[in-house]
Design a protein around this nucleic acid. Structure first.
Lengths: 109, 109
DNA sequence: GAAAATAGTAAGTTGACACTTACGTAAGTG
DNA sequence: CACTTACGTAAGTGTCAACTTACTATTTTC
């Protein structure tokens, strides 16, 4: 999740994700859409791959990339979980309790 | 949107968001939850505020922060828009057209 | 109005990261 | 088997971001 959020925080990587969302595309074709060098895109693709946002498939000398929508679905789920304030209330209650205990003699520093 | 994504890519800022999700809290109380210095949290709060993820309200000498769920809602909406591949298809079609025109004589480099 | 409480700002340091050029690698092609 | 094609990796560079310590600013309190 951490890796996914960091990955999509970068505009160029979001753009790459868009490019390979519907159809898989070779790295070169992806790179052709940008004004940075090919190695730069190669590195972005690695970040996306490590985050699970794209898959890589080799075909001859080419490498075909495709988005993995499930990974973005995780982000959506995460945000919805974040959103759901029943969970927040639970968390806050726990923290309140913890602080109460801290005041009752267990000095922390 | 850009700012929001960058802001929530940082774990500590997500944690801050959680802390002020239900109730507004003074900066000091927020900082007390972390093992970094108060100025560091102050700077995180600024990032969150600039991204529209929290609001600031001054009360006496304290500054009370509260999450602005609408901002996260924007992210959700963005992701859902991203998700919706009908839009992707439109975008891809436009790009295809652009490439076709490029081949018809307008060399790019 | 001096002192305390609560907080942000300034300036410097460190590490991460997005890039570059140069090189390495692996599969097709004459 | 040299050569090309398509791509990644290595190594170096500049910038930005998260942190620190020191300082400043703004209330409230006595």
């Amino acid at each position: 999740m951490e890796a996914v959020l960091r990955a999509i925080a970068e505009p160029r990587r979001r753009e790459i994700l868009r490019l390979v969302w519907n159809a898989e595309k070779p790295a070169g074709q992806i790179a052709a859409h940008f004004d940075v060098t090919r190695p730069a895109i190669s590195q972005h693709l690695r970040v996306l791959r490590d985050a699970g946002l794209v898959t890589e498939r080799r075909e001859g000398t080419r490498r075909l990339y495709r988005a993995r929508p499930e990974a973005l679905a995780e982000v959506r789920a995460y945000l919805e979980w974040f959103w759901d304030d029943r969970l927040h209330r639970l968390k806050q209650a726990a923290e309140l309790e913890e602080r109460r205990r801290a005041r009752h003699g267990h000095r922390k520093d």
